[in-house]
């Protein structure tokens, strides 16, 4: 027990590495601050393509979405980061993270929005169009708000997944929270930094996960 506490809950070690981990946390939050909004918006674009009435837009989009849903995000990340330099395209680690995770999350968000749009009754669109609203206005004011409301738990849940996804950036040495923690672990020969990082992730995400559970059970 003593040994367990020493290894995982060593308060001295935690106090010592806390400022370092905080820097990692900032990097994580920075990543999230552009990945989440851009992901949410590009997901709408993906949905517009996969639900387009034009086959020439719809089919390539569906194939691309399925392809990237089958593609592990880490493999995509390594491919972008380690593969492209071979043809002279050296991308900074942060850009590689942005590209790889945006492709991944836009596909997932897109599928969620699509499910939401399917759940909006056809009559809503017809009612809106019959009052003279254009197709874009109908989407903006009538169908999309309802679609989003219907799939809110899934959107939240995918956002949690996106935050967790940022830990993969540590594999290509982006100094985000988990990377900092793992570095601190190897320097202190103690796992408490990892546990501290885990606690920070829990503080960040557990409230959202609780909220999702509440929303889902209400539905």
């Amino acid at each position: 027990m003593e040994q367990f506490t020493q290894e995982f809950f060593n308060l001295d070690v935690m106090a010592k590495v806390a400022p370092f981990l905080l820097q990692g946390l900032l990097q994580t939050l920075l990543l999230c601050s552009f990945l989440i909004p851009i992901g949410l918006v590009s997901g709408i674009l993906v949905m517009l393509l996969t639900t387009s009435p034009y086959r020439l837009l719809r089919w390539p989009a569906i194939v691309a979405v399925d392809f990237f849903r089958a593609f592990p995000p880490l493999v995509l990340l390594v491919f972008v980061y380690a593969g492209l330099p071979f043809i002279g395209l050296r991308v900074p680690a942060l850009v590689a993270v942005a590209v790889a995770f945006l492709i991944n999350s836009a596909s997932y968000y897109g599928e969620i929005y699509r499910a939401g749009m399917v759940s909006v009754p056809k009559g809503q669109r017809e009612a809106a169009r019959s009052t003279g609203l254009s197709a874009t206005q109908t989407l903006l004011y009538v169908t999309l708000p309802q679609a989003i409301r219907n799939v809110l738990p899934d959107l939240l849940s995918n956002t949690v997944e996106l935050v967790k996804l940022t830990t993969l950036a540590s594999v290509i040495s982006v100094p985000e929270l988990l990377h900092s923690a793992n570095l601190a672990r190897s320097l202190t020969y103690n796992s408490s930094p990892l546990i501290l990082a885990a606690i920070i992730y829990l503080l960040l995400l557990l409230p959202v996960v609780r909220l999702i559970a509440r929303l889902e059970h209400r539905l």
Binding site: E126, A127, R129, S130, T131, S134
Partner: peptide, 18 residues
């Protein structure tokens, strides 16, 4: 769209925006 504005439509299932 301009024409539809002049043609009101009332639906069996109301289709109010919830």
């Amino acid at each position: 769209n301009a024409a539809r504005r002049q043609i009101g439509m009332v639906f069996q299932s109301f289709n109010l925006y919830p």
